[in-house]
Write a protein that binds this DNA or RNA. Structure first.
Lengths: 197, 197
DNA sequence: CGATATCTTGAGCATTTTCAATAGTAGTGG
DNA sequence: CCACTACTATTGAAAATGCTCAAGATATCG
């Protein structure tokens, strides 16, 4: 095991790389994305402290991970880690739990991408990100957004313009407030309403 | 363990149901979907012989599974199966392998939903389904499509009309041929071209 | 402080959806 | 066996959501 740090905009691993390591994040945010040959990009998720990367048993990474902020993480050599697992059977159980939870998250995101309109997608993202941060940073109406507008767009299958316009409208309607490096949620109920629940 | 059969259009389990069982499919096709309260539906995948359902350790199913054709499967009681696993440690490893492979599939589908245009989505679906069947039915240019047009649309985040029009155009262009309960692929290269590879 | 990135905003446009009408297909009962 | 019903698929035309293009504003960083 080995502590390490990567700087913003630096890549931890790329799709196709040999998956010789495995990571857990201790601070910072990463973007996980799949890139098409023509430059189109789909961000499949963002990784935050407590998340694991490289849990799959695939010999190669299917996605690229790069840092949005300064990121601290622990690196484990894959082979060594697998050895450790042999001697701790319910460790594998835990890994499977994490992986199948991620699958559930992925399936929910498919609904967002396949069946939600633009405004719903942005609302879904903001609320989910907010709740996710709540569990590690505690409750607060202020939501840091370390990712840029283009990143949000690439996560939601939209363009940067659509994301920008949607957030701008919500600011005019006092649903959210612009704060440095994020937004403050003024009317969460209104956002949930948009999702039809 | 218990063999069973379900008839077309019948539901194996619904989202929110207690996940007391676990299944492996021996014949037939199922659709796995997530339903929004307003009726919109996202099909997250189709299950075919050899696939497992309910591998997640979640106490409830996140999705609904219903039969497109007559389906035969083996049901395992969850608790009993978990017991079995305790005594066969590399069984859990296998489960994790399957789950993390499904996660990779899900992430690839996110790219389709988020960043592909309509024609690319249909091409991606046809080719992937074709290759998947090839592994269990052997190579053949004829692709059975047990799912309806609406199912394909709900899988690809499109409308039934867009799917229908796309397939109709490909038939006119002799890229595919209409056959009962499926299509025959006449020009696979052309479909792959559409995906830009 | 100038240069480069990112973001915002507007206007026109295109892809895909919506709406509507028709055609095909399967199952049911006279 | 055929009419009747219900469901699914096809096709066209109009509409709309979100995209593209372009310009300006704001922020970031040596």
């Amino acid at each position: 095991m080995h502590h390490m740090t990567i700087a913003p905009k630096h890549t931890l691993f790329s799709q196709g790389d040999e998956a010789i390591s495995l990571y857990t994040i201790t601070s910072g945010t990463l973007r996980l994305h799949y890139d098409l040959p023509d430059g189109r990009r789909q961000i499949v998720g963002f990784a935050i402290p407590g998340d694991f990367l490289g849990l799959s048993l695939d010999p190669r990474f299917g996605i690229t991970a790069d840092a949005l902020t300064e990121v601290s993480l622990c690196r484990f050599e894959r082979a060594r880690f697998m050895n450790l697992i042999e001697r701790h059977p319910n460790m594998m159980r835990k890994m499977h739990e994490v992986a199948s939870h991620e699958l559930a998250i992925a399936q929910e995101h498919m609904v967002v991408l396949g069946r939600r309109r633009a405004e719903e997608r942005v609302a879904s993202f903001l609320l989910k990100w907010w709740h996710r941060l709540k569990r590690i940073q505690g409750a607060s109406p202020t939501v840091p957004l370390p990712m840029g507008r283009q990143d949000i767009a690439d996560h939601l299958g939209l363009t940067i313009e659509t994301v920008s316009r949607t957030l701008a409208r919500w600011m005019r309607e006092r649903i959210i407030l612009d704060v440095p490096d994020g937004v403050r949620i003024l009317d969460a109920a209104r956002l949930e309403e948009l999702l039809g629940n």
